[in-house]
């Protein structure tokens, strides 16, 4: 891990890993979504609307994986003080927020024809909305900490505290009666027919690669920003 904490080595790795993740992710997503849209048969109850599964589930997974990344990076930053980890947490926040929002939107569109409602305040939907608000708060907090020159440890602590919501989202449909159905995929077994499951897993892989690519690209941008600022400061010192 210490090896990757070196920004030079990270940049050398990210330079080719970023386009690779983005390109392969886009290709895999296009394939999986095309498959899901044209090849997969309709569900016996939901009919054609089942196809939104191939968007909704990867979005939900990446919303939660986004905060997991953010919390893990925050932890590494707080304990080992790697500045790159702080950048990783900040880079994961925006794509995580976007995927969480997309999850809420696709879920709402799916809920109307199947459940008969756009939105209900049940445990799963509410805890997912809280996750979206946590992302927004983190983005605002990290931005403010940078602008005001406050310690980046404050957003990192917030990132760790917010991780409490993850097991709550995961368990919300088990602990409480909710309109959202219980998990279809649990340890080692799936209530989703392979006809749906295979394209779902492939599309999840594709969106995950896109997410990784975006995080890497944002980390490079944040690094470049820090370096440019440092150089400007040095120039100003020399001129003075």
């Amino acid at each position: 891990m210490h090896g990757f904490a070196n920004p030079k080595r990270f940049l050398a790795l990210a330079r080719w890993l970023t386009p690779l993740c983005l390109a392969s992710g886009l290709l895999i997503c296009a394939g999986a979504l095309g498959w899901g849209l044209f090849e997969v048969p309709p569900d016996q109850l939901m009919g054609q609307t089942v196809r939104i599964l191939f968007l909704h589930v990867p979005f939900a997974w990446l919303g939660m994986a986004g905060w997991s990344t953010l919390a893990l990076c925050s932890m590494i930053f707080l304990v080992w003080r790697h500045p790159l980890a702080a950048l990783g947490a900040r880079a994961a926040a925006a794509p995580g927020a976007v995927f969480t929002a997309l999850c809420l939107i696709t879920g709402s569109i799916w809920g109307r024809p199947t459940w008969g409602t756009w939105w209900v305040w049940d445990g799963r939907l509410t805890s997912m909305l809280v996750l979206f608000f946590l992302f927004c708060a983190y983005i605002a907090l990290a931005g403010a900490a940078e602008r005001e020159g406050v310690s980046p440890r404050i957003p990192a602590i917030f990132g760790l505290v917010g991780a409490v919501n993850l097991p709550i989202i995961n368990r919300s449909v088990v602990w409480w009666n909710s309109l959202h159905q219980p998990p279809s995929i649990t340890m080692g077994k799936s209530a989703i027919d392979p006809v749906f499951l295979v394209p779902l897993l492939i599309s999840t892989l594709g969106f995950t690669l896109i997410f990784a690519g975006v995080v890497l690209a944002r980390m490079r941008a944040l690094l470049a920003h820090t370096q440019a600022e440092a150089r400007l400061r040095r120039k100003a010192m020399e001129a003075a």
């Binding site: 997969v40 048969p41 309709p42 569900d43 016996q44 109850l45 939901m46 009919g47 089942v50 599964l53 199947t114 459940w115 008969g116 409602t117 209900v120 309109l179 159905q181 219980p182 998990p183 279809s184 209530a191 989703i192 027919d193 006809v195 749906f196 499951l197």
Partner: peptide
């Protein structure tokens, strides 16, 4: 006053 349908966790293709 309102009826909502609750879907279960099973996804099964319709066999035409």
């Amino acid at each position: 006053s309102t009826i909502l349908a609750k879907h279960d966790e099973n996804y099964v293709p319709r066999e035409m």
